[in-house]
Design a protein around this nucleic acid. Structure first.
Lengths: 233, 233
DNA sequence: TATCCCCATTGACATTTATCAAGCAACCAA
DNA sequence: TTGGTTGCTTGATAAATGTCAATGGGGATA
């Protein structure tokens, strides 16, 4: 008897993605069991698309490692970045037939690809699982509303400060030192400003003594309280 | 034997809010039946709050008549407007314990107030109903993503053009003449600009021959194609 | 090591948008 | 009618942000 270690690893890494006490939900084990049977683990290379805008949305994806960026291109050749996804985020939960944005890997990494019909059939058999996923969607909705609020009310440099605090939480899990996996252009397109304004924002926060920058991508938050205060006006 | 006409009217007006073929879903009739027994119909006056930020979110609300505005105030005394809701929209679906924004009536009107526990118990008994509501949340999420895209990528006057086209669809159901139920300030706070910029936007679109304005609130779209083209860059 | 390339930064200037202030039109109350 | 109030528009100016262009630094490669 052999153990397929790759499948086992899917199961354990997924369980931690579905939130606190997931294993206690009715159907959780069957769900994980079916996932480890039918879900595919896919390696993705930096800058490759996982799916594109208008592709049929037949799968959901869960990043296991690496960073993913959600983007939509504009009529004028520029683009908007909706979000950066890390390990444990979910991707493609929408129940629409087509994606309304593209998903691109910012770094090499691994995602688990799950057929939506499989998810749907689990939902029908185990309402508790469906409810948990519904809660995820609600979380996302809340997060996006916060982002909308920031976009509507805050200045460019404040938005950048918000962004850095958010990244500190999500990448560094609250530590003050972290590594940004995206370029200045990516950040600018996420925050709705030009690359140059984003760059000036970094310089300004640095000059104010709130952050320090090593090597462009390695950031240290020197004065979190001041940064918070600045971000929130 | 008497008929409680107000209850009957709740049932019929609600059924149309839950989307196409709602009546065919398993549990739809029980759901509507329980709603007409337990849901309250509430009259709300212009400018009154239905709930406020940080209130416990124990109810969901469905506007039957009138217009509702969702807003969040900023630390500096200004505010952001997240959305305008009309008949048939749903409000308070979030599964969080507290509202993250306030809901205020823009005009006199009526809403149906439904206890969330009631909804929850229906969801547990009838997965098809839960699924339908989940689809609603997804719709909202998509709508907000579009709004985020517009906020990030479009100029102030373009955002106003988008707004007018959206209102034309939602208020006038696609007709070119409609009545705006909100002030210039409300619009400005929704689109993330100053009152004056919003006003200049109206004047500019008028001068370009895309719209005409009667009495500040009554708008006619004169050249929808041009307006679309301008809005989308 | 030297060179190239990619990206970030910085500067100068143009454009957009905010702010402050004045004027105007509709509406209401006396 | 008159006067006052409220909300919208318009103008002048300031501040924020975008655009174009030049500079600079780190990493890859020959």
């Amino acid at each position: 008897m052999t153990i397929d270690t790759s499948k086992v690893s899917i199961k354990t890494s997924l369980a931690s993605c579905f939130g606190r006490n997931f294993q206690e939900l009715e159907g959780a084990n069957s769900f994980l069991e079916e996932l480890s049977k039918h879900a595919q683990e896919i390696h993705i290379n930096e800058n490759c698309y996982i799916f594109k805008e208008k592709d049929p949305s037949d799968f959901i994806y869960i990043p296991i490692s690496g960073v993913i960026m959600l983007e939509r291109s504009t009529s004028k050749g520029s683009r908007h970045v909706f979000a950066f996804l890390f390990t444990g985020n979910l991707l493609g939960l929408s129940e629409f037939s087509f994606y309304t944005f593209s998903a691109r890997a910012l770094s090499n990494g691994t995602v688990v690809k799950i057929n939506k019909q499989l998810i749907q059939s689990i939902f029908e058999r185990y309402p508790a699982i469906a409810k948990r996923f519904h809660e995820f969607t609600n979380h996302v909705l809340n997060y996006i509303l916060d982002q909308l609020f920031i976009m509507g009310q805050k200045s460019a440099h404040q938005r950048l400060a918000h962004f850095l605090l958010d990244m500190s939480n999500r990448i560094g899990h609250g530590t003050s030192k972290f590594y940004l996996p995206m370029s200045r252009q990516d950040i600018a397109d996420y925050l709705g400003m030009s690359l140059e304004t984003a760059s000036r924002g970094f310089s300004s926060l640095k000059k104010k003594g709130m952050i320090s920058i090593q090597n462009n991508y390695r950031i240290t938050i020197l004065d979190e309280e001041a940064l918070h205060h600045f971000a929130d006006d």
